[in-house]
Structures are given as C-alpha cells and as structure tokens.
Amino acid sequence: MIEVILIIVAPIIGGLIYGLERVVRARMQRRQGPPILQPFYDMLKLIDKQALIVNPYHSILGIMHFVTLWVVVAFVVLGQNLLYIIFLHLLSAIFLIIAGFSAKSIYSHIGANRELQAMIAYEPILIMTAVGFYMINGSFDISVIRNNTSEIAGLFLIFLAFLMIIPIKLKKSPFDATEAHQEIVGGVEIEYSGIFFEFLYMAKWLEYVFIYLLLMLFAGDSLILGAVLSVTVFLLVNLVDNSTARIKMKHLIKIVLGIGLSLSMINLIGLSYV
C-alpha cells in the first residue's frame, strides 16, 4: 500500500526537492530565492499558457518520456530488477532525444545531440553500478539489495563515479552542457510549451526522485545512512554547482568516461578478487 502511495506522489516529492534546491541555491548565492512551492506555481501558470504543437509526435514523445520515467520510478519503489530499470531509464532518455530531433529547431537538434553524447558518458557507469551491486548481493533485484546491509565500503569507487554522473542527470554545473540555457536555450525543451512542457518539467522532478532513490541503494537497509547520504549529496551537488562553470561536451565525456569509468572498473576488478 505504502508503495502505491509513494509512486503516486513521486512527482510531488520531486517537485518539493526541486523547490528546496532552488531555495538552497539562492541562499548560496546570497539571494532571497523563490518560495519552496515555486515549481508548483510554475505548473499552475503553465496550464494557462497556450500549447503550441510543433508536430504530434514531438508532443507525444514528450509525454512518453514522462510516463516511462514514472514507470522507472515505480519499479525502483517496487523493488524490481535494477538492470531492467536502468535500460528502461535509457528508453525514456531515448524518447526525449527522438523528440528533440523531430522538431525543426536548431537548438533542439543540438540539445538532442548533446543529450546523446551525455548518455554515452553516464550510461556505462550506471550499468557498472548495477553490476557492482550484483557482485556483492548476487542479485539484480532492488528488494534484495535493500534488505542487505550497506555496501558503500565495498562499492566506494563506484559510489564516487556515481557522484560524478549526478550533475549530468540533474543538469547542474559543471556538467550541464546538455541543457546549457545560455547557449542552446534549454536544448530539447525549447519547442515544448504550455501543457506539454509540464510533462517535461515533471519528468525533471522525477529525475530527482530516481537519482536519489538510486543513491539510497548504497545505504542498503539502513534508513539513517540513506538520509545522511541524500542530504550530504544534495548539499555537495549544489555546492559544486555554485563553484564551477559549465564545461564543454568534449571535456565532459573525457572526464566522466576517463575518471568515472576507470574508477568503477578498478572497483569491479577489486570485487572479483575479494
């Protein structure tokens, strides 16, 4: 029962995290910042806006992106197969990329292009993380991982690699070139408007929920450790966001694949010998 409620309110939780993050980020820049419910006010405002449909597929793919992500979050909450979830998550990103290419806007195309490149960077690490969990628990099932004790010590290097991809997924500096609102005005989001943009906006919130749920897996069955991890990572990501500039796609791939992949490789090799 509690899982069902969690799944239903997942976008709302994501929205709250997003709102909190905006407040924290504003405070870090010594600004007043918006109220915590600002994302929901934005949603209310977006309903009133005129929805321009560029082409039907474009809009449908945007909705599909949201729906798939929701399914991904639901599966994480229900404790399904981690590998399966990661590939489903890949599918949701693919929907977005196809949507980006289906519009004629050049910014949308560049955004989709960069999204693809970013996927090349973060997807191997996600899979490595799943493999790491498998090697320790002997199962890809999240319910099994959750019932075992915390493996963060054994997976420490993978954990570091996982930290590197959080800014990519949450579109944070230094790895926010996929969205890059000063260069390509939000990339794939640009052609969405009104009610269709709401789905993309909510998908962004779900992305938060997804990332923090995955993060909680490192804590295993200990809820306290999970909470500590989430708060620390939340602060860390925002602090890094506030102390770095956006780096280029070329550097992003080099850094994430170079450092992140080798870190997780070393961890996996280490695990197989222990």
């Binding site: 405070r27 010594r30 007043q32 910042g33 506030n242 102390s243 770095t244």
Partner: peptide, 21 residues
C-alpha cells in the same frame, strides 16, 4: 574553485543581500 566552494557553504548561513522590495 575550493574558495568559492567554501564561500557558497558559508553563504548558506548568511542573510541574503536582496530585499523583499
């Protein structure tokens, strides 16, 4: 980079510069 990292952390506990106009 580290200086602005800690500056951002310290700013969390400072009052904002902007005012409720």
């Amino acid at each position: 980079m580290l200086t602005s990292f800690f500056k951002a952390l310290a700013n969390l506990f400072k009052t904002p510069k902007t005012i409720d106009y």
